[in-house]
Structure formats: C-alpha cells, structure tokens
C-alpha cells in the first residue's frame, strides 16, 4: 500500500457495469465458499499498546469460554452440517490451534478443507509490528500449517483483522495467492503489491455470522434468510460475470443449538439451487486467475 497516502493504492477503480465475463465451471454463476474461523483466544494474553484483547480483566470468563465452545462442542456440529450438504471449508486458522487442539485441525483435514492463516492467536495483533516481526508471524504460519496439515497456506486473513502497511506486500512476497481482508467487491480482484501477485477474494463482514448476530442483532432464522437473499442476488448477477459469495463463520456462534437448524436450511437451499459452484478459496482464485 501507499503508506500515509489518503488513497492507500490497493487497487484500480473498476466499475461493476460492463466487466469482462468471468466464467465458473459447469456454467455456474456464483462461486460459494464457506470460511469457518478456527480460532484460539488466549485466556491471559500480553497487552498490546493499541488494542485490548478482552473487555474484562483476565479471565474474561464469558468471552473466553464462549469461544472455547467451538473447540469442545460446536466445531463438529457446524462441520457435520457443512459436510452433509457438500460444503468444504476454507479455514481462517489461528495457527496455534495446531498445537492446542490438533484434533480440531485434523477434523478439517479429514474433511478435505483448505487452511489459510488468521495469525498465531486471535489475541495477538499485528499493529505496530516491525517488518522482521511480521515476517516472523508469516513464516511461523507457513511452517506450522505445513507441519500440521501438509498444506502450504495460500491465503491470509489478518489476526483479528489487524494489519500493518506492509502486510499485503509481505504475504505476496512469500508467495501467498489471496487476501481476505479487503471488502471492496463481489468479484475476485487484483491487488497492487510490490512484488509477485495477490488476489482479493470476497470474504464478507456483512454476512459474517459475527456481524449478523452482534452488529445487526439477528435471530438465527433472520441470518439464514439473509444468506439466502445474498445468494439469490449474487447468483442472478453472476449470469453477467461470475460472482463470489463467502459465508464466514465462527462455530461458537453459528453452532449454537438455536442457530444451526436455520443455517442448515440455508445451506440446503444454496446446494439445491443449481447455480452455485461450491468450492474452496484457492480453487476460486485459480479459476479467476486463469481467465486474466
């Protein structure tokens, strides 16, 4: 990015109307990917000068134990529902989960899920890191995920969405193919980086379960309806040029017993529609890249 510049220079403006047609396999119109965040939050993390990890003095019992629900209960509930309807995960991973609860990571591997990095812990923030420190967390991510899953990470979602001006240039330099941190489009887009190439794949804050339940205060049924509306519109517009719909999830939210049933109905709807290319993030980026 252009550090200090009013326009960060991340991409060129490209109007939605009149774009070159992006085509998805088998004539599908919208690429749908599900992004479970498999996270580890520390109970007593060191303090960061710019951001507090927890609202309450440590231990923040509700904050910590709510998130721990993922790793004891709701990961498997969410993952089973995804598998039942043919949705693989592209995992935004706190890579230290590979050490703390390898059982959760192994379950994703067994289901054929793709892993990308969401930092070391979701309680360690990148703001104010030196270049050397940021390289250390990227190298740690590559090494840790490779050892735990055999996969080489291809993407990045910054830990707790914390960045530095160097982040995108650095992940491109390390050969990563996509970032999930930019929200400017409903199609895959090129990102301007110093070296190599980097694609921005649409992730989503707006239909992220966290936003649905804690920003927009939706019920489980309202959130499921939101996903269906999002899908219907992107599937229709994708006839002009292939669109991307991401469903970003946290098991401790979507896997609660009152929400998972309506969510399953949304997945059933999308899978049965026939216009969805249900894919992993890397496959979507590859298919787009091949058409550039």
């Amino acid at each position: 990015m252009l550090e200090g510049s009013a326009d960060p220079g991340l991409y060129d403006y490209a109007p939605y109307r009149g774009r070159r047609k992006v085509v998805w396999p088998d004539g599908k119109t919208v690429a749908v990917w599900v992004a479970p965040n498999l996270e580890y939050y520390e109970i007593d993390p060191p303090s960061h000068p710019r951001r507090k990890a927890w609202v309450r003095p440590h231990p923040d019992v509700v904050g910590y134990s709510h998130r721990d629900h993922s790793n004891r209960v709701s990961h498997w509930r969410m993952a089973d529902v995804m598998s039942r309807h043919g949705f693989p995960g592209s995992v935004s991973l706190s890579v230290a989960l590979c050490q703390h609860h390898p059982e959760v990571v192994a379950d994703g591997v067994a289901r054929g899920w793709e892993f990308f990095s969401h930092g070391i812990y979701n309680t360690r923030y990148a703001y104010e890191m030196s270049e050397e420190q940021e390289r250390a967390i990227i190298e740690d991510s590559i090494r840790t995920v490779r050892e735990a899953t055999g996969q080489t990470i291809r993407g990045w979602l910054a830990p707790a969405l914390t960045h530095t001006p160097r982040t995108l240039d650095l992940i491109a330099e390390y050969g990563l193919d996509y970032t999930c941190d930019l929200y400017h489009d409903d199609q895959v887009q090129e990102v301007k980086v110093k070296s190599g190439r980097l694609a921005s794949i649409p992730y989503s804050l707006e239909v992220n379960d966290h936003y649905g339940f804690f920003v927009y205060n939706m019920s489980g049924r309202e959130y499921a309806d939101t996903l269906i509306r999002q899908f219907e519109r992107l599937a229709a517009e994708g006839e002009q040029s292939g669109t991307v719909m991401c469903i970003p999830l946290h098991a401790y939210l979507i896997g609660q017993p009152h929400r998972i049933g309506p969510f399953e109905e949304a997945l059933r709807h999308i899978a049965a529609d026939g216009r969805a290319w249900i894919a992993r993030a890397g496959e979507i980026v590859d298919a787009w890249r091949a058409q550039q």
């Binding site: 580890y40 004891r72 209960v73 050490q99 609860h101």
Partner: peptide, 29 residues
C-alpha cells in the same frame, strides 16, 4: 516501529489449554 519482543513469545503454546483450570474434552467423544 516495533512491538516488545515478548509479544512474539508464546510460553503457553502447547497441547491442551493455555491454563490448568479444566482439561480439554470434545462433547461428541
């Protein structure tokens, strides 16, 4: 700009939890 080096140290990064209050256990198992 740089964070204190200890911010990139992870003394509790190991099997199980980062505390000893209760052991890990998955409901479905």
């Amino acid at each position: 700009m740089s964070l204190d080096p200890s911010y990139l140290e992870y003394p509790m990064r190991g099997r199980g939890y980062d505390h000893a209050l209760y052991p890990w256990s998955a409901l479905h198992e």
